[in-house]
Amino acid sequence: MPLSMNRRTALGMALAAPVILRSSRAFAAKELRVMAWQGYADDDWVKEFQDQTGATANVVFIGTDDEIWAKIKGSEGKDFDVFAVNTAQLQRYIDGGLTTPHDLAKIPNQKNVLPRFQDLSKVKGIMRDGKAHAVPFCFDSIGIIYDKDKVNPPPDSFESFWDPKYKGKILAYDNGEHNFSFTALTMGIEDPFHLNEEQMGKIKEKLIALKGNVLSFYTTPDEALQLYKSNDVALIWANYGQQQVKAMKDAGANIEYVNPKEGALAWLDTWAMTSGVQDPDLAAAWVNFLLQKKIGEQLSQRTGFGNTVVETGSAGANDKLVWLDFVEDPTKRSDMWNEIKAQP
């Protein structure tokens, strides 16, 4: 299959298209069921993939981690072949037996990714019992966006979110797990993903204080942008990193992005196969297709996310990234976050 295309093979393909297409349509009449985030399966990519393989790729886009879990768990993995999920969330799917490990031999493009993603055993959360349950696709750090007119000097620490100067001018993110983790980093706790009772109690107090300083807790980047445009906002906890920076700068905002000195949490989205995958080879072909340089460049250019194939500005070499991990007790964090939000 002509999966990694440079200009010459593309040209060759165009000339010999009828012949090559026939021979490469190994998956003619097959269907691939994809669950993805917006921006991970653009129409032109899907069309190209279908032309190359002869298969039909049906994509359903989802809006939150919660929905992916409810849908995959509720159908016991039967409704989709391949889905996008971050490494922290991935753990519960593996625990629940809802994934099928990848055969990396069928994803040759994985050999050409950025150095830090090449050895999957060094990427936290991917491997279980020597098998790769997912393949990294894109990532971003979670730093601070600040308005250059309102915040001077630039912030270098998450502590700024508690600064009374910015009361009512802060946007934070509505997610208990992340908020406990980054607050733990701010308080100098070594492992923000495995907290003990006492630490959680202290963090809860600090988050209640944060709530008093915050204008709103947002959930999507566009929501944050809209909030920024129609309100007086100085600092944003940038859950979507560079994507948000790009969107805000495009909209003319005078802002800058910084990864704080405590270390920025970083998320990594991957492609995993479900336990109900109908054709693992076709699913692997999909993942391999998306790991092309061309796709990686387009992904970063269109969404602002860092991709795993081509270098981008998502994180500098000196930035301290703390990859998200499955936390000690997501239910407990969620409950405590609910309690914090319920505080009058």
Binding site: T64, D65, D66, E67, W69, A70, K73, R92, N175, G176, E177, P330, T331, S334, D335, N338
Partner: peptide, 8 residues
């Protein structure tokens, strides 16, 4: 809603 998603 949160019970069905991240809190599982």
């Amino acid at each position: 809603f949160s019970q069905f998603g991240t809190a599982f």
